[in-house]
Design a protein around this nucleic acid. Structure first.
Lengths: 244, 244
DNA sequence: TGTCAACGTAACACGCGGTAACAGAAGCGG
DNA sequence: CCGCTTCTGTTACCGCGTGTTACGTTGACA
């Protein structure tokens, strides 16, 4: 499956950072935004699968923005607000929001809602779903999101295990950012491996090593999957998204 | 559009009466039901636009019923429950419910949710209103629901057993989402095989294997019926509904 | 240069899932 | 009633992916 691209709209920089970070850790691509203009620019330039929209946006109003977007586009929207009063909720639904979450929220619940809404959207049209599948290019390599396959620069098909593919996807979604082992574990648990709650020993190191042995020219001197001593791992390749 | 027809499923007669009455007063046609059998009889005899399904149904379980219905039909479902714990919510969403309401609820909120879900269903193409979906196309293959037959991309008629066909239908109804063995078992028990209550050993694995051997080009490297280690099985083909 | 923690990885262990072989069960024709 | 066939669940075996452990290596820092 392709990696969902979410737009996180909140005028509080701290809140925005926290949410994007959390979503990134869980395998999503999360893009920050803070105004209606930014939302529109994102919608015009790239694919967006779902918008998390704060209701209180300084001088702008999330509910009204939601109404305007709904009038034009079919992108799923989840409203987020500190006001959980019923009438607020209703205002959200009446305006066409797909869901409504009250702040502060349980992160796991947020994930469940996001998935549920996206699942609904997917079910509603396999055509729209097909358009969402995309591929990545990185340093001559190609990850084909359609078939979940990886091709070397020479065109050979490289067989990666499920878990290795999952790791690669997490890296592709977070290029140039150092990921701690815990972050990777969190992201992989979503992508679907065995779910041990915590402390998986050195499983991540092994996984990284195995992936390196398959996609690095010289695994002893990794160029793409670099290690940041004391921190974690960084994907240092030039990553570009390949629209299908 | 005609007047929406809702199905109110609750085992408490008083609650049932209250809800149907309230919904009737607000312009809906509300039909009472108290068991899975009654739901199915309604779905078979007339149009139902949305089901309000109580989670606690005496000896039956709303969540499981929801899973089974979802496997076959695309009717919108709102789960209703006295338990509002987060994990309960998630169980509902995971199973494909369109929304989840905690009892006791604000009547106005109930109305808002019902309208929101139906609005969504309408927006998501007319799929929800095709009560009887007969045929599916998937990766060149054709499942003819009218004759319960499966045709290969080359046009050959492939003979599937009753149980294999049932599994295929469950998969077609849930493309791209991982189904656990338990979910598949639940769905199949309805679709009509032998009904052993629980724990069917590895029957599902066998069934999947046999279906693979018949519809996969290379059963050793399945492209459509993929396995998600530690989770279950995913139908990864491009599925499109074929209007009759 | 010595020390120690972090990292790489070989070797092992374990559990999930594929599947061959077998066993009932149900249908069918004689 | 008896074989024969077909369908389907059970059991057992095995391969493979993945986590664990152990040990060697590297690199930062005093």
């Amino acid at each position: 499956m392709s990696i969902p691209r979410l737009l996180v709209v909140d005028d509080d920089p701290e809140m925005r950072a926290m949410m994007t970070q959390f979503l990134q850790q869980n395998g999503f691509i999360a893009l920050p935004a803070s105004s209606e203009n930014e939302i529109r620019s994102h919608l015009n330039t790239g694919r967006i699968d779902l918008i998390l929209l704060d209701v209180m946006l300084g001088d702008e109003n999330g509910v009204e923005i939601c109404a305007r977007l709904r009038a034009e586009q079919d992108v799923p929207i989840i409203l987020v607000s500190a006001l959980s009063a019923d009438h607020q909720r209703m205002a959200g639904y009446e305006v066409g929001a797909d869901d409504y979450i009250a702040k502060p929220f349980n992160p796991q619940l947020l994930l469940a809602r996001v998935r549920a809404v996206m699942q609904r959207a997917r079910r509603s049209s396999s055509l729209a779903y097909r358009r969402r599948i995309h591929s990545f290019r990185f340093d001559g390599w190609l990850y084909d999101g359609k078939r979940d396959e990886v091709h070397s620069p020479e065109g050979y098909l490289v067989a990666l295990s499920q878990r290795e593919t999952a790791l690669l996807k997490v890296l592709l979604a977070n290029p140039h950012i150092p990921l701690t082992r815990d972050e990777i574990v969190a992201a992989l648990d979503v992508t679907g491996g065995t779910d041990k709650p915590e402390a998986q020993g050195r499983a991540i190191d092994m996984l990284v090593g195995r992936l390196r042995s398959k996609i690095e020219v010289n695994p002893k001197d990794p160029q793409m999957l670099r290690t940041e001593r004391g921190v974690g791992y960084v994907f240092a390749a030039d990553v570009s998204v390949q629209e299908e």
